[in-house]
Amino acid sequence: MRADMLASILADLNGTSADIEASGIISTDGLIMAAVLPQGMDEDRVGAMSAAMLSLGDRTAHELARGALEQVLIKGDKGYVLMTYAGKESVLTVLAKPNAKLGLIFLDVKRAAENIATLI
């Protein structure tokens, strides 16, 4: 039941913007809890990389005295990867197109993360 609710949140998130290509909810130890990914994308790889990047972002923010980590944003020539905490034990990862309107995506991701946090 909870997995269905998490999948529903992701489906709603992906439907809010044509710029969002994929999303997933990952435990902080790298296990996929729910995902809406393109065919051929390896869920295990997405989970492991998301957990690793968020952990590295946490440590970087702490070591460089930037306060508590809010999000990690990676920009590549083929698009963006945005990771943010969704509660204390999970990460929301979103893949967006290169011409995405990031302000709107940040807002939608924040809302989705808050909804996820209430379920987990």
Rank of each mutant, 00 (worst) to 15 (best):
N115P: 02
T118E: 14
K88L: 04
I120G: 00
L119W: 02
P98R: 07
A112D: 02
A112S: 10
K97T: 07
L95N: 15
K101N: 13
E114V: 06
T118G: 00
E114K: 11
L107S: 11
I120Q: 04
G103Q: 05
N115G: 01
L104G: 13
L107N: 05
K110F: 10
A86W: 13
V109K: 07
G87A: 01
V94S: 01
L119R: 03
G87E: 04
A86D: 14
K110P: 07
K88Q: 12
I116D: 01
G103T: 11
L107Y: 13
A86E: 15
A117N: 00
L95F: 15
L95I: 14
E89F: 03
T93W: 13
V91C: 03
L92R: 13
V109Q: 13
F106V: 12
F106N: 05
V94F: 01
L92I: 09
A100G: 03
T84S: 11
K97Q: 12
T118F: 07
M83Q: 15
V91L: 11
E89Y: 05
R111M: 07
A113D: 05
M83K: 15
R111Y: 13
V109M: 13
I116R: 03
I105M: 02
L102H: 03
K97F: 08
N99S: 12
D108H: 10
